[in-house]
Design a protein around this nucleic acid. Structure first.
Length: 707
DNA sequence: ACCTGATATCCGATC
DNA sequence: GATATCAGGT
């Protein structure tokens, strides 16, 4: 099939697609058809006779890789089976699993996910008797972040703490001891955390140059997406795999680098041409996504950035309204203001084409409650993850024991479910297990009811580890079900749904190890394929929204300490990153962009609302680049200058004339409410329990006869 | 010695 | 909602 590159690509895209020999760096501005370019390049390569097996496509998520492959094979009219694709971590895992024995790694290598790693840290701290009773000692999650940051940025723990958590400086020595103990623990029990996957992969390539050569030869074309979010070790891995003059294509946008907290460094992309001297640089500058007013506002955000590849984004989509600055009275009323805006937008757009974005997962809390109450369908990305939920981890721990019975964290989790068994007993049982001291195990069963059953379960798992993963999951669910109800009496039905979902996902696998590694290495929302709802509103952290787009986007909580996050103010780089993050958020919008900036925040500490300071990014915008709407005390939105109602047709003076129809009414979103007054010509002021006072157009209300 | 349950405190983004 | 600690029970 002929691809007709000339008619489907602009000149810059065409250059990127057809430059297939030697290093290539594509600086792809937001919405500039980056994915399209990669897809066409894949199709072009294979169309020219390149074997799919020789292509390696490294992306940020597996889903991204799969989507690109699907689109490319659609273009080409032939499957692209054989292309290696995925994340750096999953690629590292697959190579280590195959060749890691040379490094002394076991074939059933176990990946320590974030939660496990934190539990190990807590254990180490306990064992070393550190920080007893000291409430200001960093929590295990914080300790984990510090250790991981230090490894990813390849700086001493002390330097990391000095740079952005100097209040922990008194604990440097303790933290170093914990880090050391953590390292030892992983060695002792044959465990790898996320960071180890990359570093061990690098070690393997360095120590086994024959393997490096083999892989470099096999992957004659390497493409790396989101290059601005790679860290130092990933940069070196690319170099090892490609060689200095290899056919390596890196795609990215330095303006969208938002992962420095996990060690990503913009310098990888800024210095790409130094690493690969013969690099051809191509800039994609035409934006196909956003209207001019949205793009202009976004470009203003970037104007203040310090270090960057110069590029100028332009669009041919001149038409379109100005971005709106929404100013709710408080973060609580923000939920209803945003909901009203969504209802308005829903008249022009599908719900699936609308998104609400925020800096941190918890910020959508109020909105989620309001949405749940209204019955409006929504899906949330970011924040608490599916695989991090306790009940999922419980079941997965058993799965892991099926694969590797000496997986200590999994063992602790599984045995800890039995009442009367805690950390100490777990450890003792584990010691018996590895020593094959069955007599001691049997003895322990006498005093702990339920233990025998648990051990039988583990035995069953070991014997059936080659069964289809779904069968194993279901067997564990059967065993786990009564414990689930005991452990979560309030919400076990919901959690049972989660386990059903896990079983669904398992049905797509025939290999247990692969299933387990995907569970810890891939975003599970994307694992099953079509868990993503068709026509639902999207709530998402900005990070999880990377690479996506919607017709209408609302960004909430644009106040100091929230966006930019208060954690970002510790150093200069942090602020720069918040700026890029805000840029990423704004450039997700195609036609409508709403920026919500509540005037006050509820302070739980003081039990009342306090004035909020506007986000500095908003203050940088030139006057006239947006339209401002302020919430007034009746719940409507007004332009501050004109003091005029913007909803409905006319803004008549409010009258207290009683509503002629009835005292109660029903609204599709807010539910039942009490009518307080009629506002000519067609609105009503209504008090909705849970939502407060609203001014609503009569057409949206159903009046009820009440006594 | 070890486990469980109650209580106060805090909350960043991800492979 | 999760973490950390403390008091009280076995």
């Amino acid at each position: 099939m002929h691809l007709d590159l000339e008619n489907n690509l602009n000149p810059a895209q065409l250059e990127a697609v057809t430059h297939t020999q030697g290093p290539l760096l594509v600086i792809a501005g937001a919405g500039s058809g980056k994915t399209r370019t990669v897809v066409y390049r894949l199709a072009h390569l294979v169309g020219q006779g390149e074997s799919p097996e020789s292509i390696l496509l490294l992306t940020f998520t597996r889903k991204a890789a799969q989507e690109m492959l699907n689109r490319a094979s659609h273009l080409l009219g032939q499957g692209l089976h054989g292309v290696s694709g995925g994340t750096f971590h999953s690629f590292a895992y697959s190579v280590l699993r195959r060749y890691g024995q040379d490094l002394g790694l076991r074939p059933d290598l176990t990946i320590l996910d974030r939660g496990d790693a934190e539990d190990v840290l807590a254990q180490v701290r306990e064992a070393k008797g550190l920080a007893k009773g000291d409430r200001s000692f960093p929590k295990k999650g914080t300790v984990m972040s510090l250790i991981s940051k230090s490894r990813n940025k390849e700086l001493d723990l002390e330097q990391i703490i000095q740079k952005d958590s100097s209040h922990f400086l008194p604990y440097v020595q303790d933290l170093q001891r914990i880090a050391q103990g953590y390292h030892q623990f992983k060695l002792d029990y044959g465990l790898l955390d996320y960071d180890d996957l990359l570093f061990q992969f690098e070690r393997l390539l360095k120590e086994r140059s024959d393997l490096r050569d083999f892989l470099a030869q096999r992957y004659s074309h390497i493409m790396v997406d989101e290059y601005q979010d790679t860290n130092l070790v990933q940069g070196r891995l690319v170099k090892l795999l490609a060689g200095e003059s290899g056919n390596i294509m890196a795609v990215g946008d330095d303006a969208q680098s938002i992962y420095s907290f996990r060690g990503a460094t913009v310098s990888n992309i800024l210095e790409f041409t130094r690493s690969f001297p013969q690099t051809r640089v191509v800039k994609l500058e035409q934006n196909y996504r956003s209207t001019q007013p949205i793009l202009s506002l976004s470009n203003q955000i970037l104007a203040g950035a310090r270090e960057k590849y110069e590029k100028r984004l332009f669009t041919l989509r001149e038409e379109g309204g100005k971005p709106q600055l929404l100013r709710p009275l408080s973060d609580q009323s923000q939920a209803s203001v945003v909901m009203n805006t969504i209802m308005d937008l829903a008249r022009s757009y599908d719900l699936g084409d609308i998104a609400v974005l925020f800096r941190a997962g918890f910020q959508s809390y109020h909105l989620e409650l309001a949405l749940a109450k209204s019955g409006l369908d929504f899906q949330k990305f970011g924040g608490m993850r599916f695989t991090e939920a306790a009940h999922i981890k419980d079941v997965v721990a058993h799965l892991r024991l099926a694969s590797n019975p000496t997986d200590l964290p999994a063992w602790q989790r599984a045995m800890g479910l039995i009442s009367g068994v805690g950390p100490k007993t777990c450890q003792r049982l584990y010691d018996h297990l590895v020593k094959q001291d069955f007599q001691a195990l049997r003895k322990a069963c006498g005093s702990k009811p339920g233990l025998q059953e648990a051990l039988d379960m583990v035995n069953w798992l070991r014997e059936h580890r080659s069964d289809p993963p779904q069968d194993i999951v279901d067997k564990i669910r059967e065993y786990y079900s009564p414990r689930l109800k005991e452990r979560f009496p309030d919400d076990y039905p919901k959690r049972e749904n989660g386990l059903e979902q896990l079983s669904q996902i398992a049905s797509g696998y025939s290999d247990l190890e692969l299933f387990l590694s995907d569970l810890s290495l891939e975003n599970p929302e994307q694992l099953g394929g079509r868990q993503v709802k068709e026509n639902a509103l999207t709530l998402s952290t900005v990070h999880s929204a990377k690479g996506l787009e919607w017709s209408a986007v609302i960004i909430i909580d644009l106040v100091e300490d929230r966006f930019p996050s208060r954690h970002a103010l510790m150093d200069m780089e942090g602020m720069e990153e918040e700026r890029r993050l805000f840029y990423v958020a704004c450039t997700r919008a195609k036609e409508y962009l709403g920026l919500s900036m509540p005037e006050s925040l509820f302070n739980r500490f003081q039990g009342r609302s306090e004035p909020a300071r506007p986000s500095p990014f908003i203050q940088e915008f030139t006057h006239g680049s947006y339209e401002e709407l302020r919430e007034n005390y009746t719940g409507g939105m007004v332009r501050p200058q004109e003091q005029k109602q913007t909803r409905g047709h006319a803004a008549g003076p409010e009258s207290d004339q009683p509503n002629p129809v009835s005292a109660h009414c029903r609204h599709r979103v807010f539910g039942q409410g009490k009518v307080l007054s009629f506002i000519p010509p067609n609105k009503y002021k209504v008090n909705f329990p849970g939502f407060g006072l609203k001014v609503v157009i009569g057409d949206y209300l159903q009046f009820e006869e009440t006594g």
